[in-house]
Design a protein around this nucleic acid. Structure first.
Lengths: 335, 335
DNA sequence: CTGAAAGCGCTTACAG
DNA sequence: CTGAAAGCGCTTACAG
């Protein structure tokens, strides 16, 4: 890499101190510096193609103007959409974003968070992995500005932006019941993640309120390893019951995508034989032969709000904000 | 943010110099430091929960251990997959990645690149936007380690990793011709981007070799603004020709996804009436009622290789590497 | 209006 | 075996 131009180079060239160069290039002490010299400095800076060293600036000011983003997997369109919305807001405020994927693994998550801290990020947006509660608590104690997105821990007094998962699932199941479905399956992960627990709770409550006796066999909890195979098996099992399910809720976009692929190969008639609802938008759900009814999270608003809260928190150290937004049920042909 | 622990804090606490602390924490001068003092330092560092300040380290060593990634849009699954593969390799070498989206806009691209340079990234991986050739050239002159991914400029002596786009399109069109198709449409962007030009060139060459007289009406070049509408119109036009096309190649994943959505609503019979091939894997193509034949780019290999080349370039300043990998045509029901 | 100087948190030749 | 010192590229109170 070629030697970079520093303030010192400009100062030497113009014959002034680096302090003065710093002032004029940062538009400080406006009007208190002679126009002549100020213009000379700007001209030389342009001529030498000067780029300030943000690292040096950061060291001095203890502000890195970078935000850390921790998600389960940036390759998952759910998270990459979020990343993009965050990037946009960050960019408007001259922030850049460092990202990392935790793969729902607390060790990875911990390592990632430490790396980002080491990189002196000014704050973190985290879609927290299962079992990362202690890590979040630690960050809070170290007073690292932080906001949780999508996932959160009910016991923690930490900023978060999420949807009301209980209500969203409840509403989806109500919708299926209204459509005359009596035996309702649920495909979720085997997990302690609070947002998924809430979805299950919403499912159970809606069934109970409708006076439908739930069968344990309706609830399929997929384990992370080998999950694609498990989704197939779960669907097969649900359809092979003596009284097969006639409605089904997928609790995440990935479960839905792979479930749909399998259903596609099974020549199940949707919605006649099986009505479907899924969490989150996916291209796959759009292109399924019966476009799938889904629970739309306001991802853009959530991401923007989370970023805004984080930025406020960085600059003003304000009080805690916890937001549960409303999701919207988008009804299509699969129900 | 709580005050962070520095080397100085540890040094004071132990009663040694910061230099010594630095040496033991970095495992330098192994065995040349008394075991006793070395253990004391490590113990105190652990007790105080010391995290080195990577910013300070970077300033001193001129290595930031961050890589910059510039893509068109991180929310596009094509790019977010790439991002994830890059992240993995980077992580193995203790690098972190800063990303940004250019939206195919040269101004944005330029601003992004400058921001990343300012952040002192050690190198850049760029899926270059249209019209960014001059920017890349500049980076090269400044000796910034760089590798282009997916897109590149034929005139530039800059590292790149991409596929052989000409050959991939050629092969896809050959396949359609073998299947007996005579009137072959192409949906691409109106762009100077070399990789898309190459795809068009492959399309034209394959037709020519087969002795098929091409009609200009078969080639639809979509403009960026309002592109979703244009894709619909393009498909309508191709099907409304006196002699409608009976085969169609989509040149990117997004064109394909939105094209498929429209075809879905049109009750076109695929492949009987219209055979389809698309560039890139998408969930949407999997779930289309006739799973779509597609050109599979080896994204993982490409991303890994690009990252490896970049890292080599950073550490060893080695010579230029330009790679065109083979894409693979995955044949499915749509043809 | 301008500059000398200190300092952010590290690393690393150099000296002993 | 260990430390004093310089320096990475900036910013900023302070002094004049």
């Amino acid at each position: 890499m070629a030697k970079r131009i520093s303030l010192k180079d400009i100062a030497q060239r113009v014959g002034v101190s680096t302090a003065l160069v710093s002032y004029v290039l940062n538009n400080q002490k406006q009007g208190r510096i002679s126009k002549e010299i100020s213009e000379k400095i700007k001209a030389v800076a342009a001529e030498l193609n000067y780029r300030p060293n943000q690292i040096a600036k950061s060291l001095k000011t203890s502000k890195s103007y970078t935000l850390g983003l921790v998600v389960a997997d940036i390759a998952n369109p759910f998270f990459s959409s979020i990343a993009r919305y965050i990037e946009n807001v960050a960019d408007q405020h001259n922030y850049t974003v460092l990202f990392g994927s935790s793969d729902e693994n607390p060790q990875k998550s911990q390592k990632l968070i430490q790396t980002l801290i080491t990189r002196q990020v000014d704050g973190l947006i985290i879609a927290s992995a299962e079992g990362s509660e202690k890590q979040i608590l630690e960050l809070q104690q170290q007073e690292v500005p932080i906001v949780l997105l999508d996932r959160y821990f009910p016991g923690l007094s930490v900023n978060y932006v999420a949807i009301d998962n209980y209500k969203a699932a409840h509403q989806a199941i109500n919708h299926l019941i209204q459509k005359g479905r009596k035996r309702l399956g649920l495909i979720t992960y085997q997990t302690e993640l609070f947002h998924l627990q809430e979805r299950k709770r919403g499912y159970l409550a809606a069934l109970k309120e409708a006076g439908i006796k739930t069968s344990k066999k309706w609830i399929k909890e997929i384990r992370e390893e080998n999950w694609k195979e498990e989704v197939k098996k779960a669907i097969n099992d649900l359809l092979a019951l003596p009284e097969p399910v006639d409605g089904l809720l997928f609790c995440t976009n990935l479960l839905s995508i792979h479930g749909l692929k399998h259903l596609n190969s099974l020549s199940i008639r949707v919605p006649d034989q099986l009505a479907l609802v899924s969490f989150d938008e996916t291209e796959a759900a759009d292109l399924f032969y019966a476009p799938v009814t889904y629970i739309k999270q306001p991802l853009q608003e959530m991401s923007q709000l989370a970023t805004q809260i984080l930025l406020d928190c960085i600059s003003k150290n304000n009080k805690m904000i916890q937001v549960n937004m409303e999701a919207e049920l988008i009804i299509r042909q699969s129900t």
